[in-house]
Design a protein around this nucleic acid. Structure first.
Lengths: 340, 340
DNA sequence: GCTGGCACTCCGACCGTGCGAGTGCCAGCA
DNA sequence: TGCTGGCACTCGCACGGTCGGAGTGCCAGC
């Protein structure tokens, strides 16, 4: 029906205008700014229907309309085309990310870039340990009965733990241990590291067996558990800027949730590489986020997402542009990490 | 003179009241809440003098007085005793920091603890590389002509760099290189690492000399330079809470400065272990910080500060309590890092 | 099914007023 | 000489009423 189609067109226009002006949008303003081909009165009828269906709402009688979460959802799902980035923007991304010296640096640059591009809070997850593989394991003797274990993953992430051993260890044992561990674990995915332990224990020479057991258990406990997945956050100043109005006055619950990390981490890690995921307002179960939207995507190669990244902002955001930015940045980051 | 002394007492009372109520404080309120032993009229005379001397000011005629930066400075230098922490607080510090598994974890806990204790933004600097010594150097072959260098310092910090080599390398050379580097650098302070290079080059077997030169130069360039000193920031939600009023409405320049890191880093690294340093408002050269105060201190053993930590908040803050908290936390962190 | 017109609603900006807190000054007192 | 109570004055701010404009819903006509 041409009828329904125009109504959706009206919704799209409302979302676009509201996002750019931050004022509730009325029928007359809509008719002026968009070529809908009908009069304000007709638009009013459409708006009444859209309101009844729950896509828009008025803050108070005799004010313009504002999209609801449901309205944004429909807009994102059906009414928006992902806006391709400008050449300048693509170039900026490349320039920004080139020359990073290590993983920490790559992710730091990424988060700054994303925050700058979208003018929202940017969030980048460290490559998940559980999806990485062991590149190298290093054992360093710290004191007589103390070892430091350093794990280097194929994604460039480095993790360390100190292990207290029951008895003193001599340097030769450390070297042997290093060789043993590396031959057992190098190239093995962290999720599968546990399977290798029985084998390892069996093949280990008797005098090392206790040591190997202690070290392996620390390794599994502390490194394979995904508890320690980290998050880099940037652009929080964007919250405090004009956007403060979008969060009924105070941004501090949101800042707290961001610092808490765990909530955002859970949301951001539920992603596939390639498909941008948008969560709008109330769709976020967590209370502090009900006024916010998340735009997230996984990075890494298609078959193997290393982690997630994205942005957090008010529901009133420019979804098409932000989705494009998030996707493009994720693509570049994936490339860079694949190279190293 | 008893005269001057009472005037200072008045200033102290003004600072205390203003910090706790956030209202400009008038002569009558002062007389009511403090046992100054004189009438409001007398206090008014004292206040007039204090204002003339620049220690207090009125936001507008016929409002109470508010301390100026100079007033806070005098208060901090001469009028406040550092308030000892309660037993509960000391216990909280211990509880909070115990059970940290690695450096990252220690600093993360520290920043959360400090933010919670002071209700301000907390900032912790990673142990400065230049003041650390090498505990171990690890060399991992990433691909035929690529090595990854992992540096572990005695403060538990781990740094990594990828080195591109001019020619392919075989596994034996990597092992030799590892031994060479460790015997040359282990235990050496990073600041003095440069001095060891000539020796190292001389003693290296001819076939490794090129490789050693490449690797050493990367090592020096990227690791000894203090450019990469890192900062952990937490408690930014405290800015957005009530404190927003203290920063003429917007906290976003301050958030930007914090994310920038470099400014704060410079300020925070100018510290001695043990003596708490307070910078008030305009004393901070950087524009974004002129409305803020910093309370910083170094952590580490007395003879060797590893880094700085502190808080950033409005000039209107509870200096005695915050100074005590910052000092206590720094002491515990120093202890914990010394142990590992 | 669209359109112009019309009556109605209601927010928010504007303005004027009054109150209260706080001040400076002065004359009197120890 | 220094403190005190009293008094007139100032000024910001909260309060309440008014007015205009933007926007709506409804209706009759095309």
């Amino acid at each position: 029906m041409a009828h329904d189609e125009r109504r959706l067109e009206v919704l799209r226009a409302i979302v676009q205008d509201y996002v750019s002006t931050n004022d509730p949008v009325g029928s007359k303003a809509l008719a002026d700014r968009h070529d809908l081909g009908v009069s304000p009165a007709t638009i009013r009828n459409d708006m009444a229907v859209l309101e009844e269906q729950g896509y828009i709402t008025q803050p108070h009688t005799s004010a313009g309309r504002v999209p609801t979460d449901k309205g944004y959802r429909l807009f994102v799902d059906r009414l928006s085309a992902v806006k391709p980035l400008s050449v300048a923007e693509r170039r900026a991304i490349e320039r920004f990310l080139d020359g990073a010296v290590d993983l920490h640096d790559v992710l730091g640059r990424t988060v700054r870039l994303l925050a700058q591009l979208t003018r929202q809070v940017a969030v980048v997850q460290y490559p998940t340990l559980s999806r990485s593989a062991v590149r190298h394991l290093e054992v360093v003797q710290v004191s007589a009965a103390r070892l430091m274990l350093v794990l280097i993953t194929d994604t460039g992430r480095v993790e360390q733990r100190v292990v207290d051993c029951p008895a003193d260890i001599d340097a030769g044992a450390v070297a042997e241990l290093r060789t043993l561990l590396n031959s057992a674990f190098t190239g093995v995915k962290l999720t599968e590291a546990g399977d290798k332990v029985p084998d390892l224990l069996e093949t280990a020479p008797a005098h090392l067996r206790g040591l190997v057991a202690t070290v392996s258990s620390t390794l599994l406990e502390t490194l394979v558990e995904p508890s320690e997945d980290r998050l880099v956050i940037g652009g929080t100043a964007n919250l405090a800027r004009g956007n403060a109005l979008d969060f009924q006055g105070t941004v501090s619950p949101l800042l707290e949730a961001l610092e808490e990390q765990v909530v955002v981490l859970r949301l951001i890690s539920e992603v596939d590489a390639g498909t941008v995921l948008v969560r709008i307002g109330e769709e976020n179960a967590h209370e502090a986020l009900t006024g916010a939207s998340l735009v997230t995507v996984g990075y890494g190669s298609a078959d193997r997402a290393l982690g997630g990244l994205g942005i957090v902002g008010p529901t009133r955001m420019d979804y098409p542009t932000n989705m494009a930015a998030v996707r493009a940045v994720a693509r570049y980051v994936g490339q860079i990490l694949a190279e190293s």
